[in-house]
Design a binder for these strands. Structure first.
Lengths: 205, 205
DNA sequence: GACATTAGTTACCATTGCGTACGAAACTCC
DNA sequence: GGAGTTTCGTACGCAATGGTAACTAATGTC
């Protein structure tokens, strides 16, 4: 017989949910960058005091690292899953781009969380950057694999190569997100990415 | 009769050359971002003390603003001029991309100075970002104009539109420069941009 | 050579922000 | 209810850093 009773560990229970703290951290690092956020503010946003966060995460750099991982889980993974799940490649790419633009032009957060993390100067900057490098490469590879399939199935022209298409998509969106950061409007960026899609897909116009 | 004698202004002459100070500031903001640099360090790099810089530039935010302008003058303008001067459009775009990659993967500085400025949280952040927004748009327009000419001259296919091509180039290179920041190698990025060029130009392969 | 003007330097202040020590609180297990 | 364990909040240390005040140094002008 399975019981629903959760075995609680000894000791005083946490006064906050770590993942929720990370969500706040993501929001803040995203908008203000590593140096632009102090741990105190994140703590206040989670209704807890600073030392509680330090106990849970160690130090600010680690908090950024965990926030980046959390970002990948919350924002990156679903976007990627949706891309994979959409059978129409044109629609898959378009939606991916549109979602990216929409999250990059939100009210509270603008631009790209990963760029903010990459430019920060935390102690673990090397670690974070190589993590990001892997992430960019991995994303491009996922795109490439899908493009490869589409080409094999005859639904996409053979050129440009799947690999180039994948990297193109990644690079392109970074540029778009930076332009979001400097204040280019959502409307304009949406138009832009939509006009990029046929290029990525190699469609003859 | 014109004399070469320079009329010096009254008062003690400056102990450093402002533009040189800006050059150092560019280097440092570029590599470490706004918050990652303290005025003291810039001052040391110019062999002068902090208050001298404050006297000359006002405050740190203004220093960043001037550094960005200086960057545009020293790095942006020549690159743009070379693009305009090169008659072969394929070569013009290729060189522009290659130079961008090379400066983004230097030993001392990596990534994009403008991105670093955009993500910093200076007092004048709004001013700087809208300046950058204009810059990005203006660059894209310059590219577009040139593409337009090439199309009119029959040296380039009509699609994609000149406007899209221009923005594509700008966005693309931002992505590449971010990947440079996170440690992707120059070699790899050079390969990437070279494979992007035909796409931008709309060449059928 | 005295004056006006501009710049540089030393020394300092105030703030900010990371990280921690320590005692109190909350909870499990026996 | 006591022992053991984990966490919380208050209060603090402390280093870094933006910015300034006051004095000194260098130059043109008369």
């Amino acid at each position: 017989m399975v019981t629903n009773v959760v075995k609680r560990p000894p000791g005083r229970p946490k006064g906050f949910i770590p993942d929720e703290a990370l969500d706040r951290a993501v929001e803040m690092f995203w908008e203000h960058g590593f140096e632009g956020v102090d741990v105190e503010r994140i703590a206040r946003a989670v209704n807890v005091t600073k030392p509680a966060l330090y106990r849970a995460f160690g130090d600010k750099s680690t908090l950024l690292l965990r926030a980046v991982e959390r970002y990948a889980l919350i924002y990156g993974a679903p976007k990627m899953a949706a891309f994979q799940a959409e059978p129409d490649i044109h629609k898959a790419v378009t939606t991916f781009c549109e979602v990216t633009v929409n999250t990059a032009t939100g009210d509270a957060r603008s631009g790209c969380m990963l760029a903010a993390a990459a430019l920060g100067r935390s102690e673990r900057v090397t670690e974070i950057r190589s993590w990001l490098a892997n992430g960019f490469t991995a994303s491009a590879d996922v795109f490439a694999k899908r493009f490869e399939q589409e080409v094999k199935a005859g639904r996409l022209p053979r050129t440009p190569s799947a690999k180039v298409r994948g990297r193109l998509l990644v690079d392109l969106l970074q540029g778009v997100q930076l332009r979001a950061k400097v204040g280019i409007t959502r409307k304009e960026l949406l138009e832009d990415v939509r006009s990029y899609v046929p290029l990525i897909l190699g469609e003859r116009i």
